[in-house]
C-alpha cells in the first residue's frame, strides 16, 4: 500500500451537490405530471365559467393534495427505515396506518360531529402510540432477519385492523371504515383538504434534522459518540411519522407502500446520504402518487378507482422484488 495521495482533479467534498441538472430535470418531469393531473378528469374544465370554477374547487386542491401527501408519506417511510435500520418498513407495513384508522373510527363513534381537526388529532395520537408499540416490539425481538421486522409489523397492523373492523361492524360503521381506508383523492375539494398543509411542516422538519436522523440510524452508540441524543431523535422521528400518517389518513386515506417504494428506488441509485437524497425522495413520492392517481382516474373513466388499489399492486410488486433481491445477497 503506498501512501501517495491520488491527484484527483475533482474537488473532494463529502456532500453530493444538492442542486444538479438532474434534479432540475426531475422537477420538470414532476411539473409535467402535475399539469397532466390538473387536466385529467371527467369534467371539461374548458367549458367556460363552470369549468373554471370546477378547476379551482376540485382540480387544484387535488393536485396540491397529491404533492403534499406524496412527499410526506415517502419521507415518513424513509425516516422509519433509517430509525429501524430496515428497508422494508413504512407506515403501512408497521401498522401505523391501521392505528391512525382506529383513532379516526374511535372519534367517529364517540363524537360523530367532531371537527376534522379533532379527528386528525386522534388519528395522529393513535399513530404515535402505534409506532411506539412497534418500536418497543423491535427492541424485544432480535433482528436476525430483516424480513422478520415487516412481518411483525404487518401482523400488528392486521390485529389493529381487525379490531377496527369488529368495532365498525358492531357500530354499523363498516362502510365509512372502508371509504376512509381506501386511499383516494376523489373526495379532495376546496374547504376539505386544507388541513393537509400541516404535513409541509413535517417535510421541512425532516430536511432540517436530516443529519441527526441519519446518525440516529447508525445506532445509539454512534449517535452518543458525536453528542446526538438518540432517544430524543427516535421520539421526534416517531412524532413526525405519526403526524404525516395521521393527517394523510384522515384527509386521503391509506397510501400503501408509497414510503417503501420511493426511498428504496432512490437509495438504489444514490446511496443513503439523507440530506442530498431528500429532494429526490420528495420528487419521487410526488411522481409516483400523481402517476397512480392519473391512472386511477383514466382506467375506468368516467369513474375513478381508489389510488390505493393501484399503489397496492405496484407496491406489492416492488416489495416482492426487494425481498427476492435482498434474499440473493443476504448476509
Amino acid at each position: 500500500m503506498n501512501s501517495t495521495v491520488a491527484l484527483t482533479p475533482k474537488p473532494r467534498t463529502s456532500r453530493a451537490p444538492l442542486y444538479t441538472a438532474k434534479l432540475g430535470l426531475g422537477c420538470l418531469l414532476v411539473l409535467i405530471l402535475l399539469a397532466l393531473s390538473l387536466l385529467t378528469g371527467a369534467f371539461d374544465i374548458f367549458s367556460g365559467e363552470e369549468g373554471r370554477e370546477m378547476f379551482a374547487i376540485s382540480r387544484v386542491p387535488r393536485t396540491i393534495a397529491l404533492v403534499l401527501a406524496g412527499a410526506a408519506m415517502s419521507m415518513s417511510g424513509l425516516v422509519m427505515q433509517l430509525i429501524t435500520q430496515n428497508r422494508f418498513v413504512e407506515p403501512s407495513t408497521t401498522g401505523t396506518t391501521e392505528w391512525a384508522g382506529l383513532g379516526l373510527l374511535t372519534v367517529l363513534f364517540f363524537y360523530p360531529s367532531a371537527s376534522i381537526l379533532f379527528k386528525m388529532s386522534a388519528a395522529v395520537a393513535f399513530a404515535f402510540i402505534g409506532a411506539m408499540i412497534f418500536f418497543l416490539f423491535l427492541r424485544r425481538i432480535s433482528l436476525k432477519s430483516s424480513l422478520i421486522v415487516p412481518i411483525v409489523g404487518i401482523m400488528l397492523g392486521a390485529v389493529v385492523s381487525s379490531v377496527s373492523t369488529f368495532f365498525a361492524l358492531q357500530t354499523d360503521m363498516l362502510q365509512s371504515l372502508s371509504v376512509w381506508f381506501a386511499g383516494s383523492f376523489t373526495s379532495i375539494y376546496q374547504g376539505q383538504y386544507e388541513i393537509l398543509w400541516i404535513v409541509l411542516g413535517v417535510v421541512i422538519a425532516v430536511f432540517i434534522l436530516a443529519d441527526r436522523l441519519t446518525l440516529a440510524g447508525l445506532g445509539e452508540e454512534f449517535s452518543t459518540n458525536v453528542g446526538v441524543n438518540y432517544r430524543r431523535m427516535v421520539l421526534i422521528a416517531t412524532a413526525l411519522i405519526a403526524i404525516a400518517t395521521g393527517v394523510v389518513t384522515v384527509v386521503v386515506g391509506s397510501l400503501p407502500f408509497l414510503g417503501l417504494i420511493v426511498p428504496n428506488i432512490v437509495s438504489m441509485f444514490r446511496g443513503d446520504d439523507l440530506r442530498s437524497n431528500l429532494p429526490w425522495v420528495c420528487l419521487g413520492g410526488i411522481a409516483v402518487v400523481t402517476l397512480c392517481d392519473i391512472l386511477a382516474r383514466i382506467i375506468i373513466a368516467p369513474f375513478e378507482m381508489p389510488v390505493s388499489v393501484i399503489l397496492g399492486v405496484l407496491g406489492a410488486t416492488v416489495f416482492v422484488g426487494l425481498v427476492v433481491k435482498g434474499g440473493a445477497n443476504a448476509r
Partner: peptide, 29 residues
C-alpha cells in the same frame, strides 16, 4: 470519542460520508 467493536448498520454510506460524520460535534452537519 469512542468506537465500539461491533458496527453494523444497513445505511449505505460512502467512506467519506462516514468520516464526515466525525465532524458533527463541531459543524452540526
Amino acid at each position: 470519542s469512542i468506537l465500539k467493536q461491533e458496527n453494523h448498520f444497513m445505511t449505505k454510506l460512502t467512506v467519506r460520508q462516514l468520516v464526515g460524520f466525525g465532524r458533527f460535534p463541531h459543524s452540526k452537519g
